[in-house]
Design a protein around this nucleic acid. Structure first.
Lengths: 202, 202, 202, 202
DNA sequence: GATGAATGAGCGTTCATTCAT
DNA sequence: AATGAATGAACGCTCATTCAT
């Protein structure tokens, strides 16, 4: 039941992350405990500390994974890879972002909602991973601006505004704050269209 | 029967709420504990239970306070009371909402971010207070539509989308997820302008 | 909801006892709390202390009630009142005792099982009430002895033995320690018959 | 995986059981608390949970110990091991049972009086240990029946009745409900004799 | 006769973490 | 590389009781 062949070496680290992720997804962030993770991964509670300094450290690793996953989802999408019409790319980025957020609410929570108290200890170098995603949007905006498809505004600012618009939708959805009488699809669709409309050159 | 709140000018009850709010702001929701509140307010842990049935009850009282405060801020604003140009009213509502969110991050968190798990026990009658605010936006939209100033869309849907756009900005700001290189004022301004532009009849 | 006409005077005392008894029967002894009793009787928690010095005091009053009730059941039974054949009386006393114990398990518990810790403070004068019941058995035995129907043994001793035999049955039944495969009626019947057979002159 | 008990010669585990037993005796079951046990055994409250999953688990371990001890006392008695005259064996079993009950009131209470509420979580496999003891009585009865020494009644039923007769005596004695004027030895002796007389073929 | 305010003590339990091995 | 033993701190909550009014 415990260690089998695969657990050798620092595979344990990966196992811990996998289990944590699962627990995060299934039970939520604050129900995720070191003990439960340890016992679920088949090792003693102490062993986790061989791979993660403390709970925050593990948490930060999870966040990093989340940003990697998101980056993967965005950057590997065919439309994005094709790198054709900046507008189509932008739309894809938006849709993928929303999809990611709604399909991985707990991941999304630690990535974008987690209380700043936990972020103060977030290692600086890891912010880069978080920024990669917004940089994709920004980059796409700039391409569109060069082709006169997108309004010539400060791309950093606009990218952040786009992100926060999408975030608003995901966040309210995930925390059940959207009026039950509102159709979820229409809601998402409206948000995305409003984002695109906001930047498009008329 | 005590513990009902409204009745009685109980200072302790108010103190508890004040301290809780502060603790919420400074330490985040899940670090807010009954015991800490009690000791911080200078009473025994038991005493809190004279005024609040349990932690959720206290939490709900805080949320209610937040919605009252927000409603006050929105409904009492001169421009809103004047009830003139729907567009001006809408802009005011947006600005006030953002201001409220950024000036009261502690309230804002429990009002709009708190995990649904805690909302399950939220007394139904209090939902009305939460809805009052979005209804103001909706109502304004409808007035604008009648005057052909605002696009004729489903007002409920649009009101929710507006709210989530504003929410996205507030939320990311408050949780420190906005690029430090982005000017906060420009950021907020852009969001509000984009909201207004989105609904305006061209 | 609270006080109506009947509560005047020390009727409250009776109400408290009634409610306690109900709570005792429905929820068991250690779930019976002063607060719950108070709120259930419609008075403030403090009011109980006007009528009972403390929880033990209330408990002792309940025990006393129990013994009164038992005495009532035994002494008022037609067969007992008729005071005819001592054997018939003895059988009746046994049956009534068992019935009482099985129909009022929680009462029975505080009367006959409650941890001695609680009995140390039991006021001496109240022991008399407890003794009245066993004295009835004893008295019946002596009557039977005079008529040469019952073996001439120390009646006090035998009465106690009879009581403990019955008690054993009740106690094991009530605490679920009797083999499920044993028919409850046959079990009780056997016990009672064995008690009677044990004292009968052959 | 720890906390399984049998494995490991853990002193602490034994200490916990010893202290619990003592506390049970001195203060009664519902005054027995995990924290008091811990501090009495000289460890932190947390440590108990390294050896027992929870309070019920500890309780069940105590009960099990009790049944083991009782079984030991009964099955290892010379007369019982000799397995000669069923009547002598039966008498021995009765005497040993009573002796055990009176010498180990703390064990006895949880084994035979503890409120069923706590038995609901009692692991099924442990019921077997509880049954072993009554089965010895039953087995002896059957042997006696084969030799025409004991009345041919349903052995299961009779065994249960015998047990409850003995139990009644032990229980009332241990809870101080026996008239102080009754000689304890005569009392016990009478009970045992009445049990034996009840089953003997005349 | 009755209450509201308040408390100290206690409960079972979970948690992240440390340390010696 | 991994563990077992142990802990301090905390948590939400309930309880019997007191006291001033």
């Amino acid at each position: 039941m415990k260690r089998d062949g695969e657990d050798k070496g620092s595979n344990l680290r990966k196992n811990i992350l996998t289990v944590s992720r699962k627990m995060l997804l299934e039970e939520g962030f604050d129900r995720m405990s070191m003990r439960k993770i340890a016992s679920s991964v088949g090792f003693s509670a102490t062993s986790i500390y061989l791979y993660f300094k403390n709970k925050d450290d593990l948490l930060h690793a999870l966040i990093e994974e989340g940003f990697d996953l998101l980056y993967e989802a965005l950057s590997q999408h065919p439309v994005v890879k094709a790198n054709g019409d900046p507008f189509a790319v932008l739309e894809t980025l938006c849709r993928e972002f929303v999809r990611f957020g709604m399909e991985n609410p707990e991941y999304y929570e630690i990535m974008f909602q987690l209380h700043p108290k936990h972020m103060q200890r977030y290692p600086v170098e890891k912010y880069r991973k978080a920024r990669r995603n917004i940089d994709m949007i920004r980059h796409t905006l700039e391409q569109g601006q060069q082709q006169n498809l997108i309004k010539p505004h400060d791309s950093r600012l606009v990218a952040n505004v786009i992100l926060s618009t999408l975030h608003g939708g995901i966040s309210l959805m995930n925390s059940g704050r959207i009026d039950v009488k509102v159709d979820k699809n229409a809601y998402v669709e409206t948000i995305i269209r409003s984002v695109l409309a906001g930047v498009r050159v008329n």
